[in-house]
Design a protein around this nucleic acid. Structure first.
Lengths: 219, 219
DNA sequence: GGTATAAAATTAACAGTGTTATCATAATTA
DNA sequence: TAATTATGATAACACTGTTAATTTTATACC
């Protein structure tokens, strides 16, 4: 009788509207500065209606994190085709990664913020099946594939070709990259050798990519 | 007549008590989970009394950040004497840095959290004179000195010996290091090649330090 | 069409937050 | 002792995330 399908559709529409409002507000003002009431006001519903679609604010957060990682993946993956050499692909990917973080700092922040909560074993078991975690794994997969190819082509001489070593080296690349982005976003660059902060950030980014890839390839 | 000195002393004692309570609570529960009322309760004063000593919660925060950077500096600087070779000194310093972050994750968090606030030019002018900023510069100075010596001894062949280049390379080292710490503290290590998270973190740390220093020295 | 039922959305409230204005009290100075 | 000043506390404001109870709305059945 078609009505329940329509109602289902309307429900999903409202869910999407909530996410859209939340995303725009988060991107503009940051996670902590956006209240449930503000989100509700924007979609012209009462605050409690949101709780019919999301368990709590954290669940909206997690959903947006997933969205963020998916966006990041979609930005990175074309480079697999565009750039043949895995090392150069890492370089280009790193720049794209940085671009993403700069364009949407609040988004990046909610994706990688240090939560400072000690992860219990059970919490880990739970989170491994979550959509936002899997989306993170997918984005990380870009680096893994580049490193994998780099080792296979003999361009990364350090360690063996075991999965353990590939994952380790991928994490090395990722942490170095995340380090730059994190410091830039936190405005922690100290009296860098040029005036414009934007130029300083790019200088540091290039130098860090160079250094990391040099360490990786030994070239 | 000595009374005003005593009152001054009492005032400073209370100030210290507030900081001590705040620090303990922050370290235990994290910045966001500690309220002014909780701090007040611990020192057995009313919440408003705190405002006679600190403008707002942010000022307590900033004071503790300064304390954190000073602690970090004091932990790093002995290595200038203990380890002669600047590259090996960087390696040992990095481990100490990591140890500090692991021992007091909440402390590290408030020191380096991505604020996601766009720094205006005037805000920069203001912050440059702040104590917590200068304390940060001091800690950063550990890396700068190592890099400086490394270049002088010909162990870091990349770029010239200009101050600009030294600062750039120092930032490269720092961001890579901060990247590991940041990811570890955020529990963002994905299915690493060993079971115990602590061991995974140390593996990644060592690999990142190796890679960064290899990139730096070209060895 | 009218009515029972289920869904959707709202109101009111709780316990908490940072912060401020106002008031009381204690200590120092004159 | 009286005036003044510094110190601390009370009460309140405008928020926060979240829940229980309630009302409105839409569907299904007779």
């Amino acid at each position: 009788m078609g009505t329940s399908e329509r109602r289902q559709r309307e429900k999903e529409n409202l869910r999407r509207a909530i996410l859209e409002a939340a995303r725009e507000l988060f991107v503009d003002h940051g996670f902590d500065n956006v209240s449930m009431r503000k989100i509700a006001e924007r979609i012209e519903y009462s605050p409690t209606t949101i709780y019919l679609h999301f368990k709590d604010k954290e669940e909206i957060f997690a959903t947006l994190v997933e969205e963020g990682f998916t966006l990041l993946s979609e930005r990175l993956e074309p480079f697999h085709i565009r750039v043949a050499d895995p090392i150069e692909r890492l370089r280009e990917g790193a720049k794209a990664y940085f671009g993403f973080a700069r364009e949407q700092p609040h988004f990046y922040r909610i994706m990688f913020d240090m939560k400072s909560v000690v992860m219990t074993e059970s919490a880990w078991e739970e989170i491994r099946d979550n959509a936002h975690y899997r989306a993170g794994v997918r984005a990380f997969g870009f680096i893994v594939r580049c490193v994998h190819e780099g080792i296979a082509q003999g361009k990364i001489p350090h360690g063996d070709a075991s999965e353990a070593n590939i994952l380790l080296l991928s994490h090395v690349v990722w942490s170095s990259l995340h380090g730059v982005v994190s410091l830039v976003l936190a405005d922690r660059l100290l009296k860098m050798p040029c005036d414009l902060p934007e130029t300083a950030a790019r200088l540091l980014l290039d130098a860090t990519i160079d250094n990391t890839l040099r360490g990786l390839t030994g070239k």
